[in-house]
Write a protein that binds this DNA or RNA. Structure first.
Length: 271
DNA sequence: ACTGGCTCCTGAGGGC
DNA sequence: TGCCCTCAGGAGCCAG
Protein backbone atom coordinates (compact mmCIF):
# COMPACT_ATOMS: atom_id res chain seq x y z
CA UNK A 1 0.00 0.00 0.00
CA UNK A 2 1.30 3.43 -0.77
CA UNK A 3 2.85 5.05 2.24
CA UNK A 4 4.68 8.36 2.21
CA UNK A 5 7.83 6.94 0.58
CA UNK A 6 5.84 5.55 -2.33
CA UNK A 7 3.82 8.69 -2.77
CA UNK A 8 7.03 10.71 -2.86
CA UNK A 9 8.59 8.24 -5.29
CA UNK A 10 5.50 8.49 -7.46
CA UNK A 11 5.73 12.28 -7.38
CA UNK A 12 9.37 12.28 -8.41
CA UNK A 13 8.73 9.77 -11.17
CA UNK A 14 5.81 11.64 -12.68
CA UNK A 15 6.99 15.22 -12.26
CA UNK A 16 9.35 15.39 -15.25
CA UNK A 17 6.64 14.05 -17.56
CA UNK A 18 3.87 16.44 -16.67
CA UNK A 19 5.49 19.67 -15.52
CA UNK A 20 4.80 22.28 -18.20
CA UNK A 21 2.81 19.72 -20.17
CA UNK A 22 -0.62 20.78 -21.43
CA UNK A 23 -3.68 18.80 -20.42
CA UNK A 24 -5.97 17.92 -23.32
CA UNK A 25 -8.77 16.35 -21.34
CA UNK A 26 -9.67 14.46 -18.21
CA UNK A 27 -11.56 11.19 -18.53
CA UNK A 28 -13.41 9.93 -15.49
CA UNK A 29 -14.36 6.31 -16.12
CA UNK A 30 -15.53 5.57 -12.61
CA UNK A 31 -16.30 8.48 -10.31
CA UNK A 32 -17.02 6.30 -7.27
CA UNK A 33 -13.85 6.69 -5.31
CA UNK A 34 -13.86 7.61 -1.67
CA UNK A 35 -15.71 10.76 -2.63
CA UNK A 36 -17.26 11.32 -6.04
CA UNK A 37 -14.67 12.50 -8.56
CA UNK A 38 -15.83 15.95 -9.70
CA UNK A 39 -17.25 15.90 -13.22
CA UNK A 40 -16.09 19.46 -13.82
CA UNK A 41 -12.42 18.45 -14.05
CA UNK A 42 -12.39 18.17 -17.82
CA UNK A 43 -14.25 21.40 -18.44
CA UNK A 44 -12.16 23.28 -15.90
CA UNK A 45 -8.69 22.01 -16.76
CA UNK A 46 -8.61 21.14 -20.47
CA UNK A 47 -6.04 23.28 -22.28
CA UNK A 48 -4.15 24.24 -19.12
CA UNK A 49 -0.54 23.59 -18.26
CA UNK A 50 0.60 21.73 -15.16
CA UNK A 51 2.48 24.26 -13.10
CA UNK A 52 3.50 22.15 -10.16
CA UNK A 53 3.37 18.71 -8.63
CA UNK A 54 3.85 18.72 -4.89
CA UNK A 55 3.17 16.44 -1.98
CA UNK A 56 1.65 17.11 1.41
CA UNK A 57 1.57 14.02 3.59
CA UNK A 58 0.21 11.32 1.33
CA UNK A 59 -1.69 13.81 -0.83
CA UNK A 60 -0.36 14.74 -4.26
CA UNK A 61 -1.21 18.21 -5.51
CA UNK A 62 -1.38 18.96 -9.22
CA UNK A 63 -1.20 22.70 -9.66
CA UNK A 64 -2.90 24.42 -12.63
CA UNK A 65 -3.45 28.12 -13.29
CA UNK A 66 -7.11 27.66 -12.41
CA UNK A 67 -6.70 25.57 -9.29
CA UNK A 68 -5.41 22.26 -7.96
CA UNK A 69 -6.23 18.60 -8.27
CA UNK A 70 -5.82 16.77 -4.97
CA UNK A 71 -5.03 13.07 -5.30
CA UNK A 72 -4.84 10.45 -2.56
CA UNK A 73 -3.91 6.87 -3.41
CA UNK A 74 -5.78 5.29 -0.52
CA UNK A 75 -4.38 1.85 0.02
CA UNK A 76 -4.45 0.31 -3.44
CA UNK A 77 -4.02 3.31 -5.70
CA UNK A 78 -1.21 3.86 -8.16
CA UNK A 79 -0.42 6.51 -10.73
CA UNK A 80 1.50 5.80 -13.88
CA UNK A 81 2.52 7.56 -17.05
CA UNK A 82 1.52 5.56 -20.08
CA UNK A 83 0.86 6.05 -23.78
CA UNK A 84 -2.78 6.97 -24.23
CA UNK A 85 -3.45 4.04 -26.52
CA UNK A 86 -2.04 1.46 -24.13
CA UNK A 87 -4.36 -1.18 -22.69
CA UNK A 88 -6.54 -0.21 -19.81
CA UNK A 89 -7.39 -2.21 -16.75
CA UNK A 90 -10.92 -2.25 -15.32
CA UNK A 91 -9.57 -0.46 -12.26
CA UNK A 92 -8.17 2.50 -14.24
CA UNK A 93 -10.71 5.03 -13.02
CA UNK A 94 -9.32 8.44 -13.95
CA UNK A 95 -7.12 9.51 -16.82
CA UNK A 96 -5.34 12.82 -17.40
CA UNK A 97 -4.63 13.08 -21.13
CA UNK A 98 -1.76 15.26 -22.27
CA UNK A 99 -0.95 17.00 -25.51
CA UNK A 100 2.06 14.78 -26.19
CA UNK A 101 0.00 11.60 -26.25
CA UNK A 102 0.89 10.50 -22.76
CA UNK A 103 -1.63 9.79 -20.03
CA UNK A 104 -1.45 9.92 -16.29
CA UNK A 105 -3.65 7.04 -15.14
CA UNK A 106 -5.02 6.39 -11.70
CA UNK A 107 -5.58 2.74 -10.96
CA UNK A 108 -7.26 1.87 -7.69
CA UNK A 109 -8.87 -1.56 -7.26
CA UNK A 110 -10.28 -0.89 -3.79
CA UNK A 111 -11.30 2.65 -4.53
CA UNK A 112 -10.25 4.07 -1.17
CA UNK A 113 -8.40 6.77 -3.03
CA UNK A 114 -9.60 10.24 -3.95
CA UNK A 115 -9.41 12.79 -6.76
CA UNK A 116 -10.70 16.21 -5.77
CA UNK A 117 -10.49 19.74 -7.10
CA UNK A 118 -10.13 23.10 -5.45
CA UNK A 119 -9.84 26.55 -6.99
CA UNK A 120 -8.22 27.91 -3.84
CA UNK A 121 -4.94 27.24 -2.06
CA UNK A 122 -4.96 23.45 -1.74
CA UNK A 123 -3.14 23.63 1.58
CA UNK A 124 -6.22 25.40 2.95
CA UNK A 125 -8.48 22.59 1.79
CA UNK A 126 -10.49 20.95 4.55
CA UNK A 127 -8.53 17.70 4.18
CA UNK A 128 -5.13 19.36 4.38
CA UNK A 129 -5.45 22.37 6.60
CA UNK A 130 -5.18 20.49 9.88
CA UNK A 131 -2.36 18.16 8.96
CA UNK A 132 0.67 17.90 11.19
CA UNK A 133 4.26 18.57 10.08
CA UNK A 134 6.10 16.65 7.39
CA UNK A 135 8.30 14.09 9.14
CA UNK A 136 11.30 14.88 6.94
CA UNK A 137 11.19 18.63 7.35
CA UNK A 138 11.99 21.07 10.07
CA UNK A 139 9.07 21.31 12.42
CA UNK A 140 9.10 17.63 13.18
CA UNK A 141 11.10 16.52 16.18
CA UNK A 142 11.00 14.54 19.37
CA UNK A 143 10.04 17.76 21.05
CA UNK A 144 7.03 18.13 18.79
CA UNK A 145 5.83 14.61 19.63
CA UNK A 146 6.49 15.13 23.31
CA UNK A 147 4.63 18.44 23.47
CA UNK A 148 1.59 17.15 21.62
CA UNK A 149 1.37 13.91 23.53
CA UNK A 150 0.99 15.38 27.00
CA UNK A 151 -2.29 14.27 28.53
CA UNK A 152 -3.00 11.79 25.72
CA UNK A 153 -4.00 8.31 26.78
CA UNK A 154 -3.87 6.79 23.33
CA UNK A 155 -1.28 4.11 22.51
CA UNK A 156 1.92 5.58 21.10
CA UNK A 157 1.55 3.63 17.85
CA UNK A 158 -1.86 5.17 17.17
CA UNK A 159 -0.53 8.55 18.25
CA UNK A 160 2.21 8.61 15.59
CA UNK A 161 -0.24 7.35 12.97
CA UNK A 162 -2.51 10.33 13.58
CA UNK A 163 -1.99 12.69 10.65
CA UNK A 164 -2.84 15.69 12.80
CA UNK A 165 0.29 14.93 14.83
CA UNK A 166 2.61 14.02 11.98
CA UNK A 167 1.76 13.05 8.41
CA UNK A 168 2.86 10.06 6.45
CA UNK A 169 3.45 7.47 9.15
CA UNK A 170 1.35 4.52 8.04
CA UNK A 171 0.95 1.17 9.70
CA UNK A 172 4.06 -0.48 8.30
CA UNK A 173 6.44 2.32 9.20
CA UNK A 174 4.85 2.93 12.57
CA UNK A 175 5.66 -0.66 13.45
CA UNK A 176 9.19 -0.36 12.10
CA UNK A 177 9.94 2.98 13.74
CA UNK A 178 8.79 1.75 17.14
CA UNK A 179 11.03 -1.27 16.76
CA UNK A 180 14.03 0.89 15.89
CA UNK A 181 13.32 3.15 18.83
CA UNK A 182 12.82 0.22 21.23
CA UNK A 183 9.35 1.37 22.25
CA UNK A 184 6.41 -0.94 22.93
CA UNK A 185 3.52 0.01 20.61
CA UNK A 186 0.95 0.00 23.42
CA UNK A 187 2.82 2.41 25.64
CA UNK A 188 0.60 5.34 26.60
CA UNK A 189 1.61 8.35 24.48
CA UNK A 190 1.28 10.87 27.29
CA UNK A 191 3.66 9.00 29.56
CA UNK A 192 6.68 8.66 27.30
CA UNK A 193 9.70 10.78 28.18
CA UNK A 194 11.13 13.50 25.94
CA UNK A 195 14.24 11.38 25.50
CA UNK A 196 12.28 8.45 24.15
CA UNK A 197 10.38 10.73 21.76
CA UNK A 198 13.72 11.99 20.47
CA UNK A 199 14.67 8.43 19.62
CA UNK A 200 11.26 7.82 18.06
CA UNK A 201 11.34 10.93 15.90
CA UNK A 202 14.80 9.97 14.67
CA UNK A 203 13.62 6.42 13.95
CA UNK A 204 10.67 7.73 11.93
CA UNK A 205 12.99 9.92 9.86
CA UNK A 206 15.46 7.12 9.32
CA UNK A 207 12.91 4.56 8.25
CA UNK A 208 11.14 6.96 5.87
CA UNK A 209 14.39 8.20 4.35
CA UNK A 210 15.64 4.67 3.81
CA UNK A 211 12.35 3.68 2.21
CA UNK A 212 12.33 6.66 -0.14
CA UNK A 213 15.86 5.78 -1.15
CA UNK A 214 14.88 2.19 -1.93
CA UNK A 215 11.64 3.19 -3.61
CA UNK A 216 13.56 5.48 -5.88
CA UNK A 217 15.33 2.62 -7.51
CA UNK A 218 12.53 0.07 -7.47
CA UNK A 219 9.79 2.22 -8.90
CA UNK A 220 11.75 4.23 -11.38
CA UNK A 221 9.86 3.24 -14.51
CA UNK A 222 6.41 2.87 -13.01
CA UNK A 223 5.61 -0.17 -15.06
CA UNK A 224 5.37 -2.58 -12.16
CA UNK A 225 2.01 -4.27 -12.10
CA UNK A 226 1.16 -3.15 -8.60
CA UNK A 227 2.36 -0.65 -6.07
CA UNK A 228 4.05 -3.14 -3.82
CA UNK A 229 7.73 -3.03 -4.57
CA UNK A 230 10.18 -5.64 -3.40
CA UNK A 231 12.15 -3.31 -1.21
CA UNK A 232 9.55 -3.69 1.50
CA UNK A 233 10.27 -7.28 2.40
CA UNK A 234 14.01 -6.87 2.47
CA UNK A 235 14.25 -4.05 4.95
CA UNK A 236 11.46 -4.81 7.35
CA UNK A 237 12.43 -5.88 10.84
CA UNK A 238 9.07 -6.74 12.36
CA UNK A 239 6.13 -5.99 10.05
CA UNK A 240 4.43 -9.20 8.96
CA UNK A 241 7.02 -11.29 10.80
CA UNK A 242 4.98 -12.85 13.60
CA UNK A 243 6.84 -15.79 15.11
CA UNK A 244 10.11 -15.03 13.36
CA UNK A 245 13.18 -14.21 15.45
CA UNK A 246 13.81 -10.58 16.33
CA UNK A 247 16.84 -9.32 14.34
CA UNK A 248 18.20 -7.89 17.58
CA UNK A 249 17.76 -10.63 20.19
CA UNK A 250 16.14 -13.65 18.57
CA UNK A 251 12.94 -13.51 20.61
CA UNK A 252 9.92 -14.42 18.43
CA UNK A 253 8.14 -11.35 17.06
CA UNK A 254 4.69 -10.91 18.53
CA UNK A 255 1.52 -9.99 16.67
CA UNK A 256 -1.38 -8.13 18.27
CA UNK A 257 -4.22 -5.96 17.03
CA UNK A 258 -4.19 -2.33 18.00
CA UNK A 259 -6.85 0.06 16.79
CA UNK A 260 -8.06 -2.60 14.32
CA UNK A 261 -4.61 -2.75 12.82
CA UNK A 262 -1.92 -5.41 12.62
CA UNK A 263 0.83 -4.62 15.09
CA UNK A 264 4.17 -6.40 15.34
CA UNK A 265 6.88 -5.97 17.91
CA UNK A 266 9.66 -7.65 19.83
CA UNK A 267 8.43 -8.25 23.39
CA UNK A 268 12.01 -8.20 24.63
CA UNK A 269 13.56 -5.22 22.83
CA UNK A 270 10.50 -2.95 22.89
CA UNK A 271 9.56 -1.74 26.33
C1' DA B 1 -11.33 17.74 23.68
C1' DC B 2 -10.48 12.82 23.47
C1' DT B 3 -11.06 8.25 22.32
C1' DG B 4 -12.46 4.15 20.21
C1' DG B 5 -15.05 2.00 16.65
C1' DC B 6 -17.12 1.97 12.05
C1' DT B 7 -16.93 2.47 7.24
C1' DC B 8 -15.80 2.42 2.31
C1' DC B 9 -13.91 -1.80 -1.30
C1' DT B 10 -11.79 -5.84 -3.56
C1' DG B 11 -8.00 -9.17 -4.02
C1' DA B 12 -5.46 -12.52 -1.60
C1' DG B 13 -5.17 -16.46 0.93
C1' DG B 14 -6.81 -20.28 3.59
C1' DG B 15 -9.99 -24.10 4.54
C1' DC B 16 -12.78 -27.47 2.75
C1' DT C 1 -11.95 -22.04 -14.32
C1' DG C 2 -13.85 -24.20 -7.20
C1' DC C 3 -16.39 -21.93 -3.71
C1' DC C 4 -16.90 -19.51 0.41
C1' DC C 5 -15.17 -16.96 4.24
C1' DT C 6 -12.18 -13.72 6.44
C1' DC C 7 -9.05 -10.19 6.54
C1' DA C 8 -6.26 -6.08 5.47
C1' DG C 9 -5.95 -1.24 5.46
C1' DG C 10 -6.01 5.18 5.19
C1' DA C 11 -8.30 8.17 7.35
C1' DG C 12 -12.69 10.74 7.72
C1' DC C 13 -16.57 10.55 10.52
C1' DC C 14 -19.44 9.91 14.46
C1' DA C 15 -21.09 8.58 18.95
C1' DG C 16 -20.16 8.45 23.74
Amino acid sequence: MPELPEVETTRRGIEPHILGNTLTRVVVRNASLRWPVPRILDKTLAGLKVESLTRRGKYLLLGFPAGSVIIHLGMSGSLRMVACDSDRNKHDHVEFVFQDGMCLRLRDPRRFGAVLYTAKDPLQHKLLVNLGPEPLQRGFSGRHLYDHSRGKKVAVKLFIMNSKIVVGVGNIYANEALFLAGIHPKRVAGRLTAERYDRLAQAIKNVLRAAIKSGGTTLRDFTAEDGRPGYFQQKLNVYGKAGEPCPGCGTPIKHITLGQRATYFCPHCQT
